[in-house]
Design a protein around this nucleic acid. Structure first.
Lengths: 226, 226
DNA sequence: CGGTGTAATTATGAATTCATTATTGAGTCA
DNA sequence: TGACTCAATAATGAATTCATAATTACACCG
């Protein structure tokens, strides 16, 4: 079974789901804007059928909204959405911690430590993109460590929805410091393999991250940005 | 804002997603069987385009599998899938309990009590379909009580995937008794509004349900059923 | 001018068509 | 008889076409 993997040539629509998801998560397609079917078809060199199939899937993931007879638009990042999504992500990461802590190999923990070190470097040099990337890697490695594909899939979907928020909310220094502090704890608990405590930490860490985003969102709104 | 709701006329593909999901969850379309596009098109009186769009969405939900150039087949209910899915559902229901316990109105708790009574009646008379229906209502009411649309959506998707298992696994009397006992506790904790304990109970209840399904699955397999 | 109503244009939702890939089945040969 | 080849058939994936709903442009009226 490990020998012969089924060859996977992704279908057009799967490919498009990936590409479009990236465009949305990376903020190239801006929240609230309409998705121009025709242009995207031209850009990707495909017909409307697979593109529209991809939009249906993205809609089911909550990344786009389908308006009757008016096509698709990129879903906005609303306060309400963040408030609904973060608790669910928190619950999933708590679960992941509780499953993963005893399954992780030393090598996997070391790998997480590596990304943590990279994150700390980015923190000290103020390199936010690098910080976010390393941060995301750490969370994903923990999730992957649980070895639960369903958990992983749902986490990925939810994470994609909120990841876009980082383009709207400019994290305050205090919140950043707090997050880094929590990540330090995380590494300690991971090395101590204290799954219960790690789970609780993940949960509060995520909820703090949520609060930080909401604060930043409020700040952005009060200064006139929509 | 409460006055003018946007009129919602579901598009063909949305309608089809619902209908097909029901057919799969209600075991009309059997796990492992191929989905005959042509016949379904004829049955629903639609063309292949919206039907195929619906299949893409169902695939992203994990209810069908898309085989390259060989269409879609209804996803099988595997041991591995149950083992992966139940912990996630358990985590979501735990979260729901922790959120809902203080938000639920007395009327909502009464409504849950009603369904609990109906479930107990079905239990005593041995009416399994009625039992399952009431049981499902109770869990859904709790989830709805949390008032978190993201939680609700993900729970619905996951619940659909495992609900099909009840057609394969014939619950043992012991397990049934145990589930009923836990549901009794549930009502007590709900009325006491003890969110923390209720959350933990939901989690263990779901994990027990998982164990019961796995047992039944093993029993079914050992007697020759695939 | 500003607002309303209507025609022209455009974009969407769905059906249909086309090309390609699987599947079936008859026929051949060992 | 049974395995294999290859043509015939059917089904899929994607492009195209068609009907309809929404948007825009513009004339008309106040």
């Amino acid at each position: 079974m490990t020998l012969a993997q089924t060859i996977k040539r992704p279908s057009l629509h799967e490919e498009l789901v990936e590409r479009l998801r990236d465009l949305i998560v990376e903020d190239t397609l801006k929240p609230g804007t309409k998705v121009p079917e025709k242009e995207l078809c031209a850009a990707f060199g495909v017909s409307r059928t697979p593109l529209r199939e991809a939009l249906k899937v993205l809609a089911s993931e909550g990344l786009v909204e389908l308006l009757a007879n008016r096509g698709a638009q990129v879903a906005r990042v609303t306060r309400q959405e963040l408030e609904s999504t973060f608790p669910v992500i928190a619950a999933l990461e708590q679960l992941a911690a509780e499953i993963a802590y005893e399954k992780l190999t030393d090598a996997q923990i070391a790998r997480i430590g590596e990304r943590h070190a990279a994150m700390m470097t980015a923190y000290r040099t103020g390199d936010r993109p690098a910080y976010f990337a390393a941060n995301q890697d750490i969370h994903n490695l923990l999730i992957a460590g649980a070895g639960n594909p369903v958990l992983e899939a749902h986490h990925r979907t939810l994470a994609a929805r909120v990841r876009r928020a980082r383009f709207m909310s400019n994290l305050s220094q205090d919140r950043w410091d707090q997050a880094v502090e929590e990540h330090g704890q995380m590494i300690k608990l991971l090395q101590a393999r204290d799954g219960k405590a790690l789970g609780l930490l993940m949960k509060t860490h995520l909820m703090n991250k949520c609060a930080a985003h909401l604060e930043a969102l409020d700040a952005a709104e009060s200064t006139g940005r929509t």
